[in-house]
Design a binder for these strands. Structure first.
Lengths: 166, 166
DNA sequence: TTTTAATATAATGTC
DNA sequence: GACATTATATTAAT
């Protein structure tokens, strides 16, 4: 009964059991199940990723990942005894788009920065990519455009201000 | 996310203007009077004549159009002529909760995922946050928990299926 | 060092 | 309030 979350509406803080002090007092228990993200590309064997290790340890899962280029074979002498527990196990290997894929995506982006599911699916099929990659690409592309827009506006304001001073 | 969140979007790829071939054909030419990209943050571009799935607007201080999600809005009689004018202008800057605030919110969440207004107000006062932020936090937190439940169920089913095959 | 794919999550709109 | 989707800050790979 500890890791169960009742989806019932408990009235409010007027009940003594739900006073903040009370709740915070009886906290300190085991955190029930850190939420596991959905990572279809992993084998489903996710490690409790709450263990953050030092950034010096090299990922051991690189070898299992498809996109590894093999430059990771550098054998540093003393092998780390304890499992490094890399802090990004489960992260999707970075996709490397081809120039042709980028070209098409950019072309579409110029016309439609918010492609719906159908266009994304069609693009995925055409470009041999997952639809998720397409969606992420457009999200990041929009952010990039917005960033550049912000910067140019900042420059404009700055230049105006500067020329007013001269 | 595709498997778990069946999106219901505009089938824009079926529209001639957004066929990939068509887009790639008129690429880089910027033909006069043609579709302009929908770039809400520039404030300079108009929404193209056809419906692009996009979020709707928040009537904070901005004049904007009602949403055109597409599939419901088939053919409205009078064409709405006003420009969409940035649905994100006036968007609240993303709140960065402190570790201590998260800790308290998580503790409360473990006991009560549906805090009533009184508890929310008390939390707001204690954590120096607005009550709306608390409410939004709990909404997003519930969604996250639900996602994790869906995911673990999916994993269970998948593992069962896999072990049945061995 | 720079760019950007991927992640996590706060905010928004529609129901 | 649920849900889908967005914007955005961050992380990490190139």
């Amino acid at each position: 009964s500890k890791a169960f979350f009742p989806f019932h509406h408990v009235s409010d803080s007027s009940r003594a059991e739900f006073t903040i002090d009370r709740i915070l007092g009886l906290d300190r228990q085991e955190q029930p199940g850190q939420v596991k993200p959905y990572r279809p590309w992993t084998g489903g064997s996710l490690r409790p990723s709450s263990t953050i290790s030092s950034p010096s340890c090299k990922p051991i899962n690189v070898l299992c990942l498809p996109s590894s280029k093999g430059q990771e074979v550098k054998a540093e002498g003393p092998i780390q005894q304890l499992p490094p527990l890399n802090w990004y196990v489960g992260r999707r290997p970075r996709t490397a788009f081809t120039g042709m894929q980028i070209e098409v995506l950019e072309s579409i982006f110029q016309v439609n920065s918010y492609p719906g599911i159908d266009l994304r699916e069609e693009l995925a099929q055409r470009l041999h990519l997952d639809e998720d990659r397409i969606q992420i690409w457009f999200q990041n592309r929009r952010a990039k455009l917005k960033r550049s827009h912000r910067e140019s506006q900042f420059l404009m304001v700055k230049n105006t201000f500067t020329s007013l001073q001269t």
